[in-house]
């Protein structure tokens, strides 16, 4: 009995060690993906913690059908999108908005990605605002490709779509972003 217990303990210890290794090697990846989606550092921190909790819970059920990174990317994307939806619901449910019947659209706050080169920060902030206005699947595909450097093939695996679909999402995302940015600069450029 005691031997069995020690066996279980050692498995648990091994799990903890491998989990620690996963956190160490993938924390930037998870944090950056979440940061790109929610565009808020505090929220991205919370999401990162939640993602790793889910990873720990589901590590035993991970079947190695997909790459570990792909699997973690998938969890990160779903967790971030859920978090974002929850936050939007909370904002929409605001008493003042209900009383005064304010616009349903959620205001996009100014966001500066800490990893962007200093002289490009202003342009990047405008780009992130435009990215926020893209349809969900285009936004995720674009962010995974541009901020995480994933190939279209990897994006397709994360989103569980075909390679052609992933490529099409990239093309449409770029075209939409161009239009959104043109509209923005026509309004604001002096």
């Amino acid at each position: 009995m005691k031997g069995q217990q020690t066996g279980i303990d050692s498995i648990e210890q091994n799990n903890k060690l491998s989990f620690a290794a996963i956190v160490q090697t993938r924390q930037r990846m998870v944090y950056n993906t979440a940061l790109g989606i929610v565009q808020n550092e505090g929220d991205a921190e919370d999401i990162t913690q939640e993602v790793f909790l889910k990873v720990y819970e589901k590590l035993d059920s991970f079947r190695h059908e997909a790459n570990l990174s792909t699997w973690i990317y998938r969890i990160t994307v779903t967790t971030s999108l859920d978090f974002e939806k929850q936050k939007k619901r909370q904002k929409r449910g605001g008493l003042l908005k209900r009383v005064f019947g304010a616009d349903d659209a959620v205001e996009v706050p100014h966001f500066e990605h800490p990893g962007v080169v200093l002289d490009k920060k202003e342009d990047a902030a405008i780009l992130f605002k435009a990215i926020n206005k893209l349809p969900e699947n285009q936004r995720i595909a674009f962010l995974l490709h541009r901020t995480e450097g994933l190939t279209n093939n990897e994006v397709a695996k994360v989103l569980k779509i075909s390679l052609q679909a992933a490529e099409s999402l990239q093309v449409r995302a770029k075209a939409n972003l161009k239009n959104l940015l043109q509209e923005y600069y026509k309004k604001h450029y002096k």
Binding site: H113, V117, K121, D123, A124, L127, T147, L181
Partner: peptide, 8 residues
């Protein structure tokens, strides 16, 4: 703006 994420 589109190229602002290059080299991040």
């Amino acid at each position: 703006a589109l190229e602002s994420l290059d080299g991040m």
